[in-house]
Design a protein around this nucleic acid. Sequence first.
DNA 1: TAGTGGTCTAGACCACTGG
DNA 2: CAGTGGTCTAGACCACTAC
Lengths: 234, 234
Amino acid sequence: MKELLYVYLFERIKEQIHMGVFQPGDMLPSEKDLSNQYQMSRITVRKSLSLLEQEGYTYSAPGKGYFIKEPVSNKYILDYEELSSHDGHQFQGKLVEVTIDYPTVRVMKELRISEDHYVVSIQRVLFTGDTPVAFDVKYMPYAKGIPLVEHEIKYATFPELAAKKASLFAIKRELNVKASIADENLAFKLNSSVGKPILTVGQKFFLETNHVLGWGETHYLSEYFELNGKWSFG
Amino acid sequence: MKELLYVYLFERIKEQIHMGVFQPGDMLPSEKDLSNQYQMSRITVRKSLSLLEQEGYTYSAPGKGYFIKEPVSNKYILDYEELSSHDGHQFQGKLVEVTIDYPTVRVMKELRISEDHYVVSIQRVLFTGDTPVAFDVKYMPYAKGIPLVEHEIKYATFPELAAKKASLFAIKRELNVKASIADENLAFKLNSSVGKPILTVGQKFFLETNHVLGWGETHYLSEYFELNGKWSFG
DNA sequence: TAGTGGTCTAGACCACTGG
DNA sequence: CAGTGGTCTAGACCACTAC
């Protein structure tokens, strides 16, 4: 197993950071020094240093040098898709209702539309086997091209639904997580009882222009669902 | 405002991806072709292409070429710190109790220690002004160097507490979010009532070796707290 | 002024892919 | 085999920083 030059230098410096040889705030040796010390070209040294920067260990200050970052970052990566549980298990979706109507105040606000703009609403119950796990509502400004045929809705993911027009690359998202308890309506739909803890996950899809393509909430019975985040630097 | 060469090419290609000129699965022109077409060196072209790759638009297949990725990714970035609300407001921590004792079964499992290993437990209530917002418990395997003086505990963040020994760079984290309802104990501590919705956020700190430095849960009254995630490619 | 990182160039060799 | 991306080199010029 032969190691690449730039990976080698990257590992050496990372090692020294982990061991505390370089502390947050410290300056690394200059590109020129490293290039002499490790007998490699400046370009190769720069590749190593840019790797360190990518991984969140350092930053560079032009005209000064490279510095070790403060490692305190509270960022986590959450992998969320409304039809999958945290262990990758897929939920079955069953359509409850699809309507086209004027928006409520809440929906107007979330979709950033006016009261005279039609809204498509899709309601589903998600199952694991025969057990109802979550209730899901999505709202989209009504527009031509949105599929309203049952089998299309059933298997389409939210981004696909919301993005019949725009390229998927141009879509941005926001996520919101909160806790609540089941009211009568929700308890009925999920065949559960009033007062049960509910984890509500909201998703919004929109373009750079702030044009909102869709907004929805999924209300999970907490006993069947939780979210997990992985640590991420930087 | 003068634009850098490699940024220029990066933007041009990104544009074409957004507009659908290049679709997922398509192959980009080769480095050589781009280098001819845009009249810049291969190295500069490579810099642009590596930017695209970093941002999640493309991947490269050695010996073949660069390809457009499927944009479907369900990853969000969550910024979470137990003492801050989602709008950046800081909570005040008030110490309730600090104990050193043998672990419960649950704590044994989370900290991956045996029943004869002492555990430090720190309990706090978090306030906004005079309003109790959350109840917070942290567990750490007892070891010399862990501060047990009140003022140290009060102002230290969890990673700092857990990492008196290890370098902060070496610490990994996991996050867990679930919903529950307030039991009598929690309701009493938060001056609230039984049955209120609670958002519980668990955090675990550990090393590469799987040695667990600390585990804790923060139980938020849902009316005062929610989590927000930002979309991330990749 | 001397030193630093940031950009850009031309050119070489390699391993891999596909026909 | 020709074409592709991956690695590495030497060298040039610039803008910025610090003294």
